[in-house]
Design a binder for these strands. Structure first.
Lengths: 333, 333
DNA sequence: CTGAAAGCGCTAACAC
DNA sequence: GTGTTAGCGCTTTCAG
């Protein structure tokens, strides 16, 4: 199959070293004669020489590869992130190996170990709830990594997250300004810190507006079976608070299922019910054009994540970067 | 950082080989004494030994990794494919490195070369239009790979594709059965073979139904600027054929933009206009519940792709597998 | 200007 | 039962 440097060296009666220099573009610096250089270059091109990156990485102790670990590539949000990260990594001539944990902590651990074993130079991780142990190890080993989307405040790591509390607050406040008085919160995955922050923002907005926090307006959906469970939750809210006039969804897939529900029940989600959601998917624009949306700054997250990693790889032991990014709103003030 | 086998061997006063045997689970077969085995295992666990997969791959000449090359991870369809492939690969304890070509042939070439250089054991490729050269090389090198979604009939390769002509024919025939007589075809990327096949299916359905092929009902949208160009196309059709009563979209993103258009113009897409589309995205279920849809058998594609590759890796030089899969319809007959 | 040789961490044929 | 050794393909120090 593929020829190696040795093959080229033998064929041309030069040494492996010379071939290596030339192919690495160091011919001039090493003062290899032009004739030799050209001979090597020509031959390499002719036989379509491709370096064995495994060998190179082994020698160099670095694979020029970044690893991305996300809960699920099926999720539009993470798919976008993956894209941005890949593009940005390419700018620094890193390639990307991506794996999805399927929100299974065991899988996640396995993946992280595997990526380390493959000697990826750094990791970008959107951690699941139970990632702590594995992250502890990374911290201890000083393995370069940056968390995105979720984080652990007690851990001194790089992270880039959304201003969850603030965005929530803005969204709910916007509903309040429309005169909504009975705004339900639909949420899930409440063991996640970010979800609590979103709830906090919701509560703060209500209390600042002098609105009561009605327990019946709190809808918690079981993750995993959210497609069916949200029906139970919404049914419950409409029975107990028939004049509910607003919904704030803590994440996009909840909004999606709720929209399905509203459409099935022929409900008026333009006048009678105000909607807001943190995160978005492209179809919301059509399905619920008047829904207030706080979007994740996906491009920014992807870019920063790569840059933080690249910087850390250049000079280890720098301060950890902790970024809290504002959301991008589809409305004013 | 990570200890190597040598370190373990030194620390325990045994040889690298012994460590290698034991850690590879060959202790019993190689008749290493139980005490030694336990000593090694215990120590490895204690220092949290992780093998260097680069070194192992270099030695073994195989990385236990498959590569997936897709046009864009942003696309729901390919994201799903990526997920299935990853899960299936895991069953055979292969890991997955995925890259997206962004439908840029140069990028695609680069990616394929890079993956080969990293010595991935096999490739799953959803090729872009101009992939021929790179594929020719793969064929010549006998590098194991399988094409999905698109293929080159003149190339003897593994491939798994949808029955494009047949699915199209079924969709359009279904519209005809509803009494639609002026069915427009909205398509794009017409240099792709699969797109031509879809057009052929449309035409066959019309001709079998004795319906004329009205040129004004053929809408070709420029890829790349389809979001704006589709408006021009649809405007054109509605002006020239005001009583158009059906639309067949050759792919999901065209349907998506058309729906946007129909909604903006407040058009009746339940009674007056019949819709059909090859491919789907989740929001269609809400946006256009009555649209006839032919779905790609994503799971099947992902599974088969991996299995074909795994089989080929076990025994090279087998016959190439060429699969044409039927679509999954959301309607009867 | 060019080459020899060591070493990255692992496996496996071949001793003893 | 265990160790020696060579080699995977590359980079890089040191010697000519």
């Amino acid at each position: 199959m593929n020829l190696s440097m040795k093959d080229i060296a033998n064929a041309l009666n030069v040494s492996k070293t010379t071939v290596s220099w030339v192919l690495a573009g160091q011919g001039d610096r090493r003062k290899i004669s032009l004739s030799t250089q050209e001979k090597i270059l020509a031959y390499a091109r002719k036989v379509n020489y491709q370096p064995n990156l495994l060998a190179r990485s082994l020698t160099n102790g670095s694979s020029n590869t970044l690893g991305l670990v996300i809960p699920s590539i099926d999720d539009e949000f993470y798919a976008h992130i993956a894209r941005e990260v890949e593009m940005e990594a390419e700018k620094y001539s890193y390639s990307l190996t991506f794996c999805s944990s399927e929100t299974d902590p065991k899988r996640e651990s396995r993946i992280i170990r595997m990526l380390k074993s493959k000697r990826v130079d750094g990791l970008i991780i959107a951690p699941t709830k139970h990632s702590r142990e594995e992250l502890d190890i990374l911290v201890e080993e000083k393995y370069p990594f940056v968390l995105i989307d979720r984080y652990f405040p007690e851990l001194d790591t790089n992270y880039i997250i959304l201003d969850n509390e603030g965005s929530s607050h803005q969204l709910v406040t916007r509903l309040v300004r429309d005169g909504r008085k009975k705004i339900a919160l639909i949420t899930s995955d409440t063991h996640l810190l970010v979800m609590n922050l979103r709830r906090d923002g919701y509560r703060r907005a209500l209390s600042e507006a002098g609105l009561p926090a009605i327990p019946a307006l709190y809808g918690e959906v079981k993750r995993g079976e959210y497609v069916t469970d949200i029906i139970r939750v919404l049914d419950g809210i409409f029975t107990e608070v028939p004049d509910v006039d607003g919904f704030y969804f803590s994440t996009h897939y909840l909004a999606m299922e709720a929209l399905r529900y509203f459409y099935r029940h022929g409900m008026d989600i333009t006048e009678k019910i105000g909607l807001a959601c943190l995160h978005t998917v492209s179809s919301f624009e059509i399905l619920a054009p008047r829904m207030y949306i706080a979007e994740q700054p996906i491009r920014e997250i992807g870019r920063q994540a790569v840059q933080i990693l690249v910087n850390e790889l250049k000079s280890a032991d720098r301060e950890k970067t902790k970024m809290v990014l504002p959301a991008v709103m589809n409305f004013n003030e």
